[in-house]
C-alpha cells in the first residue's frame, strides 16, 4: 500500500531533481526521502537516468554551418527584391506561358538567336536576372530572349492555317 506522502513526493521528484521546487517543498521532499526507502530508490533511479543522459550527450558533435545566418539573410533579401518588383512575377508567368506555347508555334529550323533589339521587357528581365544571379531567372531570361529572337526573325504564325 502506497502512503499518501509517497504519492505527493512522487509527483514532486522531477521538480526536485531539476531544482524547481521552493525551499519549503525541497525540505519536505528531502525529509520524506530520508524516511522512505521506496521513494529514495525512485529518486535514485531518476537521477541515474538523467546522469546517464548527461554523460552521453554533453556536447553535440555537429555544428551549424558558418554561412547559416548569411543564407537566411540572402533569402530574405531576395524576397524583398521580388516584392519590390511585382511585375517580375507576371513577366515570369508570361515567359512560362510562352515557353509552353512554343511547341504549338510553327517555327521552321531557325537561325541562332541574334536578335538585334529584343523587346524592352526582355531586356529588363535580363538585367534583373543578372542582378539577382538566380539560375532559374537567368535561364528564363535566356529562353525568352531566344524565343523573342525566333519570333522576330520568322514572324508569328500559328500552326493551323486560317480558313
Amino acid at each position: 500500500m502506497i502512503r499518501e506522502d509517497c504519492r505527493t513526493v512522487t509527483l514532486l521528484l522531477l521538480d526536485h531533481v531539476y531544482r524547481d521546487l521552493e525551499e519549503v517543498w525541497t525540505h519536505r521532499v528531502e525529509r520524506h526521502l530520508a524516511d522512505c526507502a521506496e521513494c529514495r530508490e525512485r529518486h535514485a533511479r531518476l537521477r541515474e537516468t538523467l546522469e546517464l543522459v548527461d554523460r552521453a550527450t554533453v556536447e553535440p558533435e555537429e555544428r551549424i554551418s558558418e554561412q547559416f545566418a548569411a543564407t537566411v539573410l540572402a533569402i530574405l533579401q531576395r524576397r524583398r527584391a521580388d516584392e519590390s518588383r511585382p511585375w517580375l512575377r507576371a513577366a515570369m508567368a508570361a515567359c512560362l506561358v510562352l515557353g509552353l506555347l512554343a511547341p504549338t508555334l510553327r517555327v521552321p529550323s531557325l537561325p541562332k538567336a541574334t536578335a538585334p533589339n529584343p523587346p524592352p521587357a526582355v531586356v529588363e528581365l535580363q538585367l534583373v536576372a543578372k542582378e539577382l544571379n538566380d539560375p532559374l531567372i537567368v535561364e528564363l531570361a535566356w529562353q525568352t530572349a531566344q524565343l523573342s529572337a525566333r519570333v522576330q526573325s520568322v514572324g508569328f504564325r500559328t500552326s493551323r492555317p486560317v480558313s
Binding site: I2, R7, T10, E41, R45, T49
Partner: peptide, 17 residues
C-alpha cells in the same frame, strides 16, 4: 528513458496506482 536505460520503472508504477 528510465525503462530503456536502467530497466522498467516498476517502483514508480506502484506509486502512481
Amino acid at each position: 528513458l528510465q525503462g530503456s536505460l536502467i530497466g522498467s520503472g516498476e517502483v514508480d508504477e506502484r506509486a502512481r496506482r
